[in-house]
């Protein structure tokens, strides 16, 4: 077994709200199964797999689907209820990599100066200072906090470089959420999430989503800022070898910055989340 049974227990993003109009259909793939999406009246959606209708729910501007009869509950993002935020679904990007690698890369700040040069990082500010990682037992989530990093342009709304604070949450194996200093609102943090739809162990569709305080940028500007960053990651992700994520230390040399990554891999292993991992369980 490669962990697919474990993966089947979760909810996955499959479409944005209002993406399919009434009568419009689209095919999709999830965990190696072929799905059919059909738009209905009043922005409704049905999803079937071999003509069997699947359970659906709506959250964070996306439709979430599960293949399980008895799924785990969907994680929560309390900031999604804060009406003053701008909610920005950024569309979908296909990446030829393991869904776990897409999450792991999102958690890694050390690559900022080299991959997102002059935006999320810049030389010589390459040092990753000490930060905290723990497993939140009550929610069973990986949490990394107290992360500080110098950023030339932390967000579309940033005017010049700032030291940014980050917090990361991994509430499900294929979901990563970050909170970062909001350049426009001193006491608040912007929220950026990656919702990953696994097509198979080596291909995923990634749906970035943001909940920001920014009342100056246009929607197109906000989306393109996020796409610029994510597409820089995409070419790196597609070149990572092996394609699947190794959960055992030693196969790849971890650097000091990889504390979050190490915890994430351990947490995956502990819960049997081997889908997209190099090792079989």
């Amino acid at each position: 077994m490669n962990g697919i049974e474990h993966a089947l227990e979760y909810w996955y993003p499959i479409a944005m709200h209002n993406e399919l109009s009434n009568g419009q259909t689209r095919r999709a793939r999830l965990l190696e199964k072929e799905l059919l999406l059909s738009g209905g009246a009043n922005d409704s959606l049905t999803v079937t797999c071999n003509e069997r209708p699947l359970a659906l729910q709506s959250a964070f501007d996306h439709w979430w689907v599960t293949l399980s009869e008895n799924p785990l509950p969907l994680f929560t993002i309390p900031e999604a209820d804060e009406a003053e935020r701008r909610f920005v679904p950024c569309g979908v990007v296909r990446v030829a990599c393991s869904p776990l690698r897409a999450v792991e890369n999102f958690l890694d700040i050390a690559h900022f100066p080299f991959v997102h040069t002059d935006v999320l990082g810049a030389e010589p500010h390459t040092e990753v200072y000490k930060y905290d990682v723990k497993i939140d037992e009550s929610k069973d989530e990986v949490i990394a906090s107290n992360i500080r990093f110098y950023q030339p342009q932390a967000a579309k709304s940033a005017e010049g470089g700032i030291e940014t604070e980050y917090i990361y949450r991994v509430p499900a194996p294929m979901v990563a959420i970050l909170y970062k200093t909001c350049p426009q609102k001193a006491d608040a943090m912007d929220v950026i999430a990656l919702f990953v739809q696994p097509l198979d162990e080596q291909t995923c569709d990634v749906w970035p989503w943001m909940a920001l305080y920014d009342d100056t940028s246009t929607m197109a500007d906000l989306i393109q800022f996020q796409q610029l960053i994510f597409l820089q990651d995409r070419s790196i992700l597609e070149n990572q070898i092996p394609r699947k994520l190794p959960l055992d230390p030693g196969l790849e040399i971890p650097t000091r910055a990889d504390l979050t990554s190490i915890s994430y891999r351990r947490w995956l292993k502990k819960r049997g989340a081997y889908y997209g991992a190099l090792e079989n369980c």
């Binding site: 950024c90 569309g91 979908v92 246009t218 929607m219 197109a220 500007d221 989306i223 393109q224």
Partner: peptide
């Protein structure tokens, strides 16, 4: 001027 090519098809 940023145009929302994807996902907006602007």
């Amino acid at each position: 001027i940023a145009v929302d090519f994807h996902p907006g098809q602007e």
